[in-house]
């Protein structure tokens, strides 16, 4: 296939010696440029199924590559590397390594849903983007998002205590996501709270942080819940 543009070649496939003399002829720099072939050697058949197991990815198999999604895409207008049509193709064939070259921008989908509204096959590309981002996160290919950190802390407290404690949720969230515990808004919150001095409320909040009360007769409920959530997740993505 003809090379349309040099920018389409991955940099690591371009071989070039800055100084090279062959048979007494100086062929330094671009005179000796070689390109290693980009041969695809296999498909990962189950990859499409894995993406389909994530919410939003169910219809990815319907795609026939018309490009309507990319055409209409808000992000594509900003960056032509953001190409849902191309990613859906890679997902369908299980060309994971190719897909991973764009792993740092797939999450950028803004969920405007223009693609989903225009798609003639009802692939719901916006959902596929979401499913792919979740799969990457689950597999540690991309860092956890802030919302995932929040979800995890929230779920942890629910399972542990049968209830949440707002202060603990915020602290846990900031810890998990490596953010400073002293936030400007918390300082402001404290200042305003101290003006009104709601002593009873402050005392109650303090007690809850220290003693961490559980929901009445919580017992083993948390363990059972955790077990169930884990089983559901495994059934969805590996079943």
């Amino acid at each position: 296939m003809a090379i349309h543009e040099k920018t389409l070649i991955d940099p690591d496939r371009i071989l070039q010696h800055d100084h090279l003399v062959v048979d007494g002829v100086d062929v330094s720099g671009s005179w000796n440029t070689m390109i290693t072939p980009r041969t695809l050697t296999d498909y990962e058949e189950n990859f499409e199924k894995i993406i389909q197991s994530y919410s939003g990815g169910e219809n990815v198999h319907r795609c026939w590559q018309c490009g309507s999604c990319t055409n209409s895409c808000t992000m594509y207008a900003q960056n032509v590397d953001f190409n849902p049509r191309y990613w859906i193709y890679l997902i369908r064939l299980g060309l994971k390594a190719e897909l991973m070259k764009d792993k740092d921008i797939i999450w950028q989908c803004v969920s405007c849903n223009k693609c989903t509204n225009i798609c003639p096959k009802d692939v719901r590309p916006e959902g596929v983007m979401k499913a792919t981002a979740h799969w990457m996160e689950d597999n540690g290919l991309t860092p956890k998002t802030l919302s995932t950190h929040f979800d995890e802390e929230f779920t942890h407290q629910c399972i542990e205590f049968g209830r949440i404690e707002d202060t603990e949720v915020m602290m846990g969230f900031y810890k998990r996501s490596n953010q400073p515990l002293v936030q400007a808004w918390i300082v402001e919150f404290g200042k305003r709270l101290s003006k009104g001095l709601p002593l009873g409320q402050l005392a109650k909040m303090g007690m809850n942080v220290v003693f961490r009360p559980k929901t009445k007769s919580w017992g083993k409920t948390g363990e059972v819940l955790a077990e169930y959530v884990k089983a559901q997740k495994e059934a969805a993505h590996h079943g």
């Binding site: 349309h4 590559q65 018309c66 055409n71 207008a77 032509v80 191309y86 225009i118």
Partner: peptide, 27 residues
């Protein structure tokens, strides 16, 4: 090989077809 996203008009009165050429991966 492109499914056109929209047809608009340019200031000079000609029509503009917008989309993605899927074979060259370019808008």
């Amino acid at each position: 090989k492109a499914r056109i996203a929209e047809v608009t008009k340019s200031p000079d009165g000609r029509l503009l077809v917008k989309g993605e050429d899927t074979l060259v991966k370019r808008p």
